[in-house]
């Protein structure tokens, strides 16, 4: 009996050692000569495999960066910080200027008390759902529905709906643009803001003219053009019945207080800037 045990143990040990030796030998023979840079670049990337760079995952992105097929700032959510690290590994300069950051901006200012609901909605609690089934349950066809599809979609927990309106946490936001694609009403855009200037936004997205919009929303942009006149030069432009901010023009010397004060519909809002660069 004990003989069998010993023989069994010996057999298995022998076989295991044999295969271990074989695999060990194969490992040295078949070792993949991967560019060590790939590993370092991959470490610098966020590793979330979001696919925003156009490759299936961070590994493929790293491989293509090292091959030179992709620029070092390929990683959208990684932003400047990752781009700098990658560029350093690759010994390259990056294209994006420092002191700028991509941030999602919400172009609607209708908090719950300003939303003019047209009816009770009892379907799936989702903006896309309500937009598809009823075309929305607020008077304004362009305004935020407030059911928080963007909050759900955000991979970085950077956008939260409070009082019927999404608020972007500029520090967490990476400008990846997932919310932009999710929002059925295209209320959100991703803007490159200058960190040394103020961060303001026009909280309206409606191309309706002033008369029409007054009937639908109290805080909709009436395109009066006061911001263009009273605000810093070149910062605002009214186009298609809607005021727009020229983010690349904004610098530290610009003062937006008058524009924000004088806007008759309180449509220009000052937003908190990201605290750190990156």
């Amino acid at each position: 009996m004990s003989g069998t045990v010993i023989i069994s143990a010996a057999t298995m040990t022998g076989l295991s050692l044999l295969f271990a030796a074989l695999l060990g030998f194969a490992h040295t023979k078949l070792k993949v000569e991967e560019d060590p840079k790939v590993e370092r670049v991959e470490e610098a990337l966020p590793g979330i495999d979001c696919g925003a760079c156009g490759y299936p995952g961070c590994h493929q992105c790293a491989v293509n960066i090292v091959k030179g097929k992709a620029p070092p700032d390929s990683c959208v959510p990684g932003g400047d910080e990752v781009a700098e690290k990658v560029a350093e590994i690759m010994g390259l300069d990056i294209g994006t200027e420092p002191g700028k950051k991509l941030v999602a901006v919400v172009h609607c200012g209708a908090t719950e008390e300003f939303k003019q609901r047209t009816g009770e909605y009892e379907g799936v609690e989702s903006c896309r759902g309500i937009e598809l089934t009823t075309g929305g349950n607020i008077k304004c066809e362009y305004g935020c529905l407030g059911y928080g599809d963007c909050e759900e979609a955000c991979p970085f927990d950077a956008i939260h709906v409070t009082n019927g309106l999404p608020e972007v946490d500029p520090d967490k936001c990476t400008g990846c643009g997932v919310c932009v694609e999710t929002c059925p009403r295209d209320i959100i855009t991703v803007e490159e803001i200058n960190l040394d200037g103020e961060f303001v936004a026009v909280a309206c997205n409606s191309p309706d003219d002033g008369v029409t919009i007054r009937k639908k929303c109290e805080v909709g942009c009436v395109a009066c053009g006061l911001c263009e006149k009273l605000g810093p030069e070149g910062a605002f432009e009214v186009q298609d019945n809607l005021s727009q901010v020229h983010y690349p023009e904004i610098d530290e010397e610009m003062d937006f207080e008058t524009a924000i004060d004088k806007c008759p519909v309180d449509c220009i809002v000052s937003l908190s800037k990201p605290t750190e660069e990156g």
Partner: peptide, 16 residues
């Protein structure tokens, strides 16, 4: 005479 080891040893072969 340890045929009962076939499962274990076969898996070893396959895994390797």
């Amino acid at each position: 005479g340890v045929e009962f080891l076939e499962y274990v040893s076969f898996i070893l072969v396959i895994a390797s």
